[in-house]
């Protein structure tokens, strides 16, 4: 089946996937668990703290179990399922109260929400717990928007930002809608589109070291389009993408920098950095 070909490059807008329906609790909870994620823990701890501050400002008590570590995603996507399962099991044990689990990263939240059930498919007891935790796991932006029903009051000067949503956040957690809606609450912030906005930045967990050339080409294209967008700042709710994008921008000695959505929201709304 072959049709006449066109060779004209065009900027692309891919139709958005239909959002998966989810019902949200009617009231804000008193307490939540924060699962910080391993990348935020070591490389973006301030983003985790800003998430805590944003949640506390909503009158919510944040519980941060100190025994938490990693969701298990790196091993899971590398095919080391047994190792991922044990790390996942250690996390599951930490969130036994009936409080929401809020995660400042779309792909790690997706791990809790979708993949733990696959990991424990053969263990009925753990599977029940995994399902229960999945039910009350939220990505941070989603939680602020739909559960806290946050109203943000922008206090910063006018600026333009480009939002990068991680692929798993977009496709598993639909957080691009949430990130956009939160940024749009900020009166002084204008969101600018960047070329091939929906395309992967090339991080992909261990993909970036297994296929360094391809990953490098992807992040080169992503950072070029972000720089060309004219945005003063890149905002993302996913620390893995941020590490990738910021690393590339740094290597290019570009003045542009990426910031975690939690930190951006906190600083724009009067919080101290």
């Amino acid at each position: 089946m072959n049709a006449p070909r066109t060779f004209v490059p065009q900027a692309t807008r891919v139709a958005e996937p239909a959002a998966a329906p989810r019902t949200y609790p009617e009231h804000k909870p008193e307490r939540i668990y924060l699962f910080g994620t391993c990348v935020v823990d070591l490389f973006f701890p301030e983003a985790g703290m800003d998430a805590i501050r944003l949640l506390e400002r909503e009158g919510i008590q944040v519980v941060f179990p100190q025994a938490q570590s990693c969701c298990g995603q790196p091993a899971y996507t590398s095919g080391y399922t047994d190792q991922a399962r044990e790390v996942a099991r250690a996390q599951l044990a930490l969130f036994d109260q009936d409080w929401p689990v809020v995660v400042p990263s779309g792909s790690c939240a997706g791990m809790f929400r979708h993949h733990y059930q696959e990991l424990f498919a053969g263990e009925p007891d753990t599977l029940a717990r995994a399902r229960a935790v999945a039910e009350r796991t939220y990505e941070l932006a989603e939680f602020l928007l739909h559960v806290c029903r946050v109203e943000l009051h922008d206090q910063g000067p006018p600026t333009e930002v480009a939002l990068h949503t991680s692929c798993s956040a977009r496709r598993e957690m639909h957080t691009h809608h949430h990130g956009r809606a939160l940024l749009d609450q900020l009166s002084g912030v204008r969101r600018v589109d960047h070329d091939h906005e929906s395309e992967c930045c090339g991080f992909g967990g261990t993909f970036c070291v297994r296929m360094p050339d391809i990953s490098g080409a992807m992040v080169a294209d992503k950072t070029r389009s972000l720089r060309d967008s004219g945005a003063a700042r890149v905002v993302s709710a996913d620390a893995g993408c941020l590490m990738n994008i910021n690393g590339a921008l740094e290597k290019q000695r570009a003045p542009l920098q990426g910031q975690h959505l939690a930190s951006f929201l906190w600083q724009r709304t009067g919080g101290q950095p």
């Binding site: 924060l34 360094p212 690393g247």
Partner: peptide, 23 residues
């Protein structure tokens, strides 16, 4: 850092982890 730094700067851990700051 191997293939990572072919296209990116090396990531440096923060001065304190989120575990410490949160605690």
């Amino acid at each position: 850092l191997g293939p990572w730094t072919e296209h990116r700067g090396a990531p440096k851990p923060a001065a304190r982890s989120l575990h410490e700051l949160a605690r």
